[in-house]
């Protein structure tokens, strides 16, 4: 692609080809769901720290409080788990697309 401008009104833009539209929808839906789960956790810890100190100061073992555990250990595990789930769903979609491509190839 080169840097020469050609524009079109957004309302006149033709729809995306079905393959790209399906891939985009599947990926963005999964990403949004995972992001919501992640941010609900992050914001809950943040808000509860200021609104429910009694709960967040609950001791789990020794001097380890609920908020210390959530912030310094569970949040870091969750950062990895959310990304791993995203890769897992990507893999599932990838394998399905390979299968579809192979079956199309056999049909030709």
């Amino acid at each position: 692609m080169t840097e020469g401008k050609k524009t079109i009104a957004y309302k006149d833009l033709p729809p995306l080809d079905p393959d790209t539209a399906v891939t985009m929808n599947e990926e963005v839906n999964i990403s949004i769901v995972l992001t919501i789960i992640y941010y609900v956790f992050l914001l809950a810890v943040t808000i509860l720290n200021w609104t429910a100190p009694g709960l967040m100061k609950t001791l789990l073992w020794g001097g380890m409080s609920l908020t210390w555990f959530a912030t310094s250990l569970f949040a870091l595990f969750m950062a990895f788990a959310i990304a791993a789930l995203h890769v897992y769903f990507y893999h599932k979609r990838f394998n399905r697309q390979v299968l579809m491509q192979n079956s199309k190839g056999q049909g030709v």
């Binding site: 050609k6 524009t7 957004y10 995306l16 080809d17 891939t23 985009m24 990838f94």
Partner: peptide, 19 residues
């Protein structure tokens, strides 16, 4: 409201399945 005329091609390029 004026988007690049080839924005669909761009989206196809960056979102197409990499098999």
């Amino acid at each position: 409201g004026q988007v690049p005329a080839d924005v669909n091609d761009f989206m196809h390029q960056i979102h197409q399945p990499d098999l």
